[in-house]
Design a protein around this nucleic acid. Structure first.
Lengths: 192, 192
DNA sequence: GATTCGACCCTAGCACCGCTAGACAACCGA
DNA sequence: TCGGTTGTCTAGCGGTGCTAGGGTCGAATC
């Protein structure tokens, strides 16, 4: 059985290589540059190899998105860990979220802008996505306020962050006032 | 000069036809279905004709976006016109915005999701886009609150609406609770 | 009214895209 | 050593956005 195990190991390694390479290429040159031909060339295999791991380009994007969701959740928890008090935690959380979107635009796009064929808000939502939402929920449920469903509050807060992230990056909002916008959002939405 | 004028009229008419057809096609079958070939076939001209009006597909999307911005501004103003009091106006505005995004997803995408090659938040921002923002500003500046820049407040409110619109349509937020989310957002953000 | 000329549009084709069929080679188990 | 499976590659399909170049038709001129 050792032979088969080795093959599976190699396969898994190559799959990670594909996803990692796709992410790198997207971060360097944008998702438009991530074509199956270029991706295949970078991993030093032919195109059809990609299709033995993923159904198509969409699934590759989805894999990057899942990886990104895990990273986002980790970043959010790391940021809020050493903040004292609910108020500071929320502000830090919001900062960390927008930071992530700004620093990893390609990954953020894979998660929320592009079609990665992922299910959301269903029972069959992949675990990393649920965990990303959970990371938001942990901090935000502290400041949802009386009689307000923490889940609902998190959704609203998240939507606002997402809107700011995307509109800013698309050049729809001037980046200069990002700090003040964030402050206003947190002050108004969070009940401390 | 009459000949030349007639030609210009015909040209302008054909340009409107292109934009209108692109929008219809996008609304019917999504933007993926809007290819230069299909578009050319629908307007009963050959592909290169498109390029005598627009630099490329991106500019056609941009034209749909501009048309959409005008329509959105009109919709927002019409909705808020017969609402009594700042509070009701804000709620109505928010409803109208999300309604527009839901009823005209293709146009909304052209404006805010796709690359239409349009400038935003600059001096050279096209007039319809500025007017769309102005339509939001008119109602929202009433509820910005003391010492808060109305423009900044509008940006934050808009971002939240945009986030809710896109996340809902992308299946990231369950549409069932949209009403309650909107209520929460308005109650928290607007100062009455 | 004939002729010249220029504006306009179409055919054909470029390079690239995502994806796949089928040939071929390499490796495993007997 | 050999048969068969497994895996990879070459080649190509239909599609994309976009463009070069030829041909046609109508307008302006003689």
């Amino acid at each position: 059985m050792s032979v088969q195990e080795r093959k599976e190991r190699e396969r898994a390694g190559r799959e990670r290589l594909i996803v990692e390479t796709a992410r790198e290429l997207a971060e360097q040159q944008g998702w438009d540059a991530v074509t199956t031909r270029r991706l295949a060339e970078r991993i030093e295999y032919s195109q059809p190899v990609l299709y033995s791991h993923f159904r198509g380009k969409r699934e590759i994007i989805g894999a990057v998105a899942l990886e990104g969701a895990t990273a986002l959740a980790r970043a959010l928890r790391a940021a809020t860990a050493d903040a004292d008090g609910p108020s500071a935690r929320v502000a830090t959380l919001a900062h960390a979220y927008l930071d992530f979107a700004e620093r990893h635009p390609a990954v953020y796009d894979a998660m929320f802008q592009l079609d990665g064929g992922l299910a959301f808000a269903h029972e069959d939502t992949p675990e990393p996505l649920k965990d990303g939402f959970a990371a938001l929920l942990e901090t935000l449920s502290e400041v949802a306020g009386e009689g307000v469903d923490p889940g609902l509050f998190t959704e609203v807060f998240w939507a606002a962050l997402h809107g700011m992230a995307t509109l800013t990056r698309a050049g729809r909002l001037p980046p200069t006032e990002a700090e003040r916008r964030l402050e206003l959002l947190v002050n108004r939405l969070a009940v401390v």
